[in-house]
């Protein structure tokens, strides 16, 4: 049992995204301060379980953030 999944159990689905977003934002802010709001927003569109995986795995988080940055740059090009 992981601490991360335990935070989701009692929460309605909307609140789950909120909690995941708060945690995700904190992590991404340390990596990409200027893009944290957008990257977090993009990654929150993924399944909650994927987001949980990001919170628990720095390597997975990094890979998804890199993907999101690439998509964002392509979108803004």
């Amino acid at each position: 049992e992981s601490p991360a999944t335990s935070i989701l159990a009692p929460a309605p689905s909307g609140d789950q995204k909120q909690m995941l977003g708060e945690r995700l934002f904190c992590l991404i802010q340390t990596m990409l301060p200027s893009l944290a709001a957008k990257i977090t927003g993009m990654l929150l569109e993924l399944d909650n379980l994927d987001v949980l995986h990001m919170l628990e795995s720095p390597e997975f988080l990094r890979s998804k953030v890199d993907e999101a940055v690439a998509v964002l740059q392509d979108h803004e090009a």
Binding site: E22, C26, G41, M42, L44
Partner: peptide, 22 residues
């Protein structure tokens, strides 16, 4: 460039609405 509202931005303390239609 276009100014469509994407991606949605998440800000701590602000209720997340995602891509739900406004």
């Amino acid at each position: 460039g276009s100014s469509i509202n994407w991606p949605p931005e998440f800000h701590p303390g602000v209720p997340w609405k995602g891509l739900q239609s406004i």
